[in-house]
Design a protein around this nucleic acid. Structure first.
Length: 260
DNA sequence: CTGGGGACGGGGCCC
DNA sequence: CGGGCCCCGTCCCCA
């Protein structure tokens, strides 16, 4: 399924999602709960401090360790020291042509006048450039894009084409966002935020059709399906519709489609 | 068994 | 590049 739905929606009605009931969601933030419970709900500075988790290391196919995932993935306890020993220094965005996995070659050429010049040569297609940034641009636009060395996660087998995506994924292993109330850890701050609502009882997403409210937007969306005559997920055989895909799957598995 | 709610995971886009 | 946010999806539990 294409991910074009990920485009941020605006209040403009022409850009609304398919969920017609979502067109005018009565979303409000109720701060009273936060006032009633004087807890440090999202102390970002502490929860997300660098000390809460080890810095991210980029694992490429070249340095992917063979050792399996450590059994202790607690976000609070220590992580393998190997996680932090090579981090960041090779990825600071500097112009230095120094990288452990960079196959580029720095060659010295002598022109007809006997003047020695340095050339930066691509290790993949042998094209040479007078500046490292030129080589870098070439690699980003051409060679790396094709025979892309994916960024591989140390903890699992997943690979990503961008460093940012890998870093985001690694958070699902390191879980740097810790709930101060119960200690549960999450990969992203807003996941923690949603979790904290389970403690505070805050339900900022209200159904415009009934008086129900939800702490989670996805749950409101699923709930809105229950107000719809024709639900989103339809059985191809009996045309019955369901509010959730899981219900459709259950329906299919329980026999409707078995006869065919 | 079915329908619905609660909680949460995770990839991708926007700023 | 990172944070915030969007959306889809899944699992579990309960009525």
């Amino acid at each position: 399924m294409p991910r074009s739905f990920l485009v941020k929606k605006h209040t403009n009605s022409a850009k609304k999602p398919n969920y017609s009931e979502l067109e005018s969601p009565t979303v409000f933030i109720s701060p009273y709960i936060y006032r009633a419970i004087p807890l440090p709900l999202i102390p970002q500075a502490e929860i997300l401090s660098p000390g809460a988790y080890s810095p991210i290391t980029v694992w490429t196919t070249n340095n992917l360790p063979l050792s399996p995932l450590p059994s202790d993935l607690s976000p609070i306890s220590g992580y393998p020291s190997s996680l932090s020993d090579t981090s960041s220094k090779d990825h600071s965005g500097s112009e230095s042509p120094r990288s452990d996995e960079d196959e580029s070659i720095l060659t010295k050429l002598t022109d007809p006048h006997g003047v020695e010049t340095e050339k930066f040569q691509c290790g993949m297609c042998s094209k040479s450039y007078s500046t490292y940034s030129g080589l870098l641009k070439h690699k980003q636009l051409h060679c790396d894009a094709q025979s892309r060395k994916s960024f591989s996660c140390k903890y699992c087998e997943k690979e990503y084409v961008s460093l940012g995506a890998l870093k985001m994924h690694i958070r699902t292993h390191t879980l740097p966002c810790v709930c101060k109330i119960c200690g549960k850890a999450f990969s992203r701050p807003w996941l923690l935020q949603g979790h904290i609502r389970t403690h505070t009882g805050e339900k900022p997403f209200s159904c415009p059709h009934c008086n129900r409210a939800f702490a989670d937007r996805s749950n409101l969306r699923a709930h809105l399906q229950t107000h719809s005559d024709v639900k989103k997920y339809q059985c191809k055989n009996c045309s019955k519709t369901f509010s959730r895909m899981s219900l459709l799957h259950k329906h299919e598995e329980s026999g409707c489609c078995v006869a065919h």
